[in-house]
């Protein structure tokens, strides 16, 4: 699967880190680092992460 995070919108709330820790982590500046093409087995976690982002910054492309 492929995802994209709007880094201008990301404000480091970390909800995605809690929902999908294998895909998202916070960098030292309060923004997220992420795996752009996570394994398909992560799909449910990534969807939960997208649902949980207060800035609505996570887009699942495919």
């Amino acid at each position: 699967m492929k995802i994209r995070v709007d880094m201008d919108a990301c404000d480091g709330h970390a909800q995605c880190v809690f929902a999908a820790p294998n895909v998202f982590e916070l960098d030292g500046k309060g923004k997220v680092n992420y795996v752009a093409e996570p394994d398909e087995s992560e799909r449910e976690h990534v969807m939960a992460a997208a649902d949980a982002c207060p800035l609505l910054a996570i887009e699942i492309i495919e």
């Binding site: 404000d11 480091g12 970390a14 916070l26 960098d27 030292g28 309060g30």
Partner: peptide
């Protein structure tokens, strides 16, 4: 008052 990684670690 910030959103840094320290706060996340404490959480």
């Amino acid at each position: 008052l910030d959103n840094g990684p320290q706060l996340i670690e404490y959480s």
